[in-house]
Amino acid sequence: MQLETYISDLLYRYDCVIIPQFGAFLTHRVSARVHETTHSFYPPKKALSFNEQLQTNDGLLANYIAEVEKVPYLVAVEKIAKHVKSIKSYLVAGETIAFHNIGDLILNTEGNINFEPSHHINYLTDAFGLSQFTSSDISRELHKEQVEAIEDVIPLTITSEKRKNRPYLKYAAIAIIALTLGGFTASKFYVNQIETQNQLAQEAANQQLDIKVQEATFVIDNPLPAVTLSVEKPSGNYHIVAGAFRIEANSDKKVQQLRDQGYTALKIGKNRYGLHEVVYSSHTDRLEALKALRTIKRTHNREAWLLVKALD
């Protein structure tokens, strides 16, 4: 039994997955951050940890295994217990237990389990499509400090008497003021150029992200004219997603196609990328939704997936 596969599936949707009589994998959200030394930008993510004290069976993992493997709940519980017993024996023998895409477990000298999380996967669905990138350092000339230094060396205070006797000082002062203003203007222009360049780079990155998201959805080459559908309000927080469309007419067409095939297809609004989401159905019961998802994957669309989202 690939226990880590089931745990990994659940970590996308839940913040705590308990392995009965062993411990629990926990997640907490970490905001996006910038490394000041390497100038690397990291997207938000779910950070993983392990708590050996949480061992009481809450039914989540066992129910999921029972549904996926089509076995009774008690059989799933027995399978977990047998797997946990095997894991503990390996830990006692000093071996490291590697949970794929989750992390490594090892027993320390005090008899407690140490956990080293894996960084190969981000379980935060809100950060889908976002990856780490590095930006080059931007150096700016400090024109203001240079002007202040010039003013300290060459003061601009000129008396009337000096202007009468030595008029060339007037032109020298005008020249210095012009140079100072020119320095400020050049500095402002330089900073504006940098900000404009950064804005263009950000827009290009956003455009690339939109293209990737659009490529990951259903694409209809010949959209029909917009039609008006009478769609009932979806109920439940578990939605089996059929696709997402940038053009609303395409989403209407997809809803009609699925309804013609016997599905209770609905539109559930726009996602964070502005795409119109279409679902096969919505469910109030998680197990019922998982069962329907497996059927759709097997008979109609292997790319369908389960979205857990409370609708307004």
Rank of each mutant, 00 (worst) to 15 (best):
K144N: 07
L11D: 14
V77Y: 13
L124Y: 06
D137F: 10
L156D: 13
I194N: 12
F189P: 10
T125W: 14
Y42N: 00
I177S: 06
L181T: 11
L107I: 14
G269T: 10
K188N: 04
T284L: 03
D285T: 15
L142P: 04
S31R: 02
V219Y: 12
L91N: 07
R166Y: 15
Q261N: 09
A265P: 07
A178Q: 13
S118M: 14
N51V: 07
L287V: 09
E232I: 13
V278R: 05
A244H: 01
E288W: 01
G182N: 06
K270D: 11
T217E: 13
N301K: 13
Y6K: 14
E67T: 07
L10I: 11
S136W: 03
S86G: 14
D152Q: 11
V231G: 06
L54N: 09
H35P: 00
I65Q: 02
V231K: 05
D285S: 12
A93S: 13
K233P: 01
L307A: 02
E4S: 15
R29Q: 12
G274D: 06
I158M: 09
L200D: 02
S135F: 08
Q21I: 06
T157Y: 08
Q193C: 05
H283N: 01
G269V: 12
E95V: 13
L224N: 05
Q146I: 10
S49A: 03
G103T: 06
R246E: 14
P20R: 04
P223D: 00
Q202A: 04
M1T: 14
S49I: 00
K212Y: 03
I80R: 00
